[in-house]
Design a protein around this nucleic acid. Structure first.
Lengths: 141, 141
DNA sequence: TATTGTTATACTCTATAACTATA
DNA sequence: TATAGTTATAGAGTATAACAATA
């Protein structure tokens, strides 16, 4: 039984991504968070007052999908919305949100450390540059 | 506006994966295929007679989710099911499935080439080894 | 005119539990 | 007793179109 896909970078990228994402979600489950929740909490924590649209653009989540997303975090008492002008919502963490964000950050750091440690040490310095290139790189032909 | 996530391997892995997957799906749209359809066609093409369960194990798709998946490809006239024993279904490509698979393979090869070319040439040899490690590697502490 | 937030909707992918029939 | 296929169901994530209010 041969797998014609496991030498293809794009296929490996997807399999590695889904596998490691499952690990992260498992870690975050103790906080009743998903990875998407955690990334938004970290983003807001680093940028209090960021608007819903700006956060969506950075995380590549569409405006329409941000609505129930933010509403859920607000209902959980983690995120607060404040009107900036007539149409924009400024987002910030509640004190409970701050606490949960810090604990999420700890779990994420542990996850990132374990993930990087899967790579043989001599190749580790290339991991982030390569992933950045695969994401939006131009290469050099 | 700062993004606290773009230095994290796990986050970059996810973003790179979803971005490149969108590109692949766009290419495959001319064949009315999704990336998951294409990967299954390639797997069956390389392993005629493979059972539904075996294919699911290799592609990490659960048995329950294979059912509507295969049914759809069968309804499109691309895949044929043949009883191997009382419970197993052997999968193979119809002649139309063979044709579509070959064209999908061409698109995938083009996609994989373009993806790899995003990485600066001096780092390219590390791409597959690193992705394999991130997927299921053990590292060396 | 362009942007923000919103509603409605649909599709893909993934996950679990339970059933049957077969090995 | 374990496995293959199946049904039903639910939850994420993502996508598009359209609308009101505001800049």
């Amino acid at each position: 039984m041969q797998d014609p896909l496991t030498s293809l970078p794009g296929y490996l990228l997807r399999r590695a991504s889904t596998a490691s994402l499952a690990e992260l979600n498992q870690k975050l489950a103790v906080l009743t968070l998903r990875h998407s929740d955690a990334s938004l909490l970290l983003l807001i924590g680093s940028n209090p007052g960021i608007t819903q649209s700006e956060a969506g653009r950075i995380l590549d989540i569409q405006r329409a999908n941000m609505v129930p997303f933010i509403a859920r975090l607000e209902a959980q008492g983690l995120v607060r919305r404040q009107q900036v002008d007539g149409r924009s919502q400024g987002l910030s963490l509640t004190s409970m949100g701050e606490d949960v964000m810090l604990r999420a950050r700890g779990l994420i750091e542990e996850y990132e450390r374990q993930l990087l440690n899967k790579v043989p040490s001599d190749m580790r310095p290339f991991v982030v540059p390569i992933l950045l290139s695969l994401w939006n790189g131009a290469g050099d032909a």
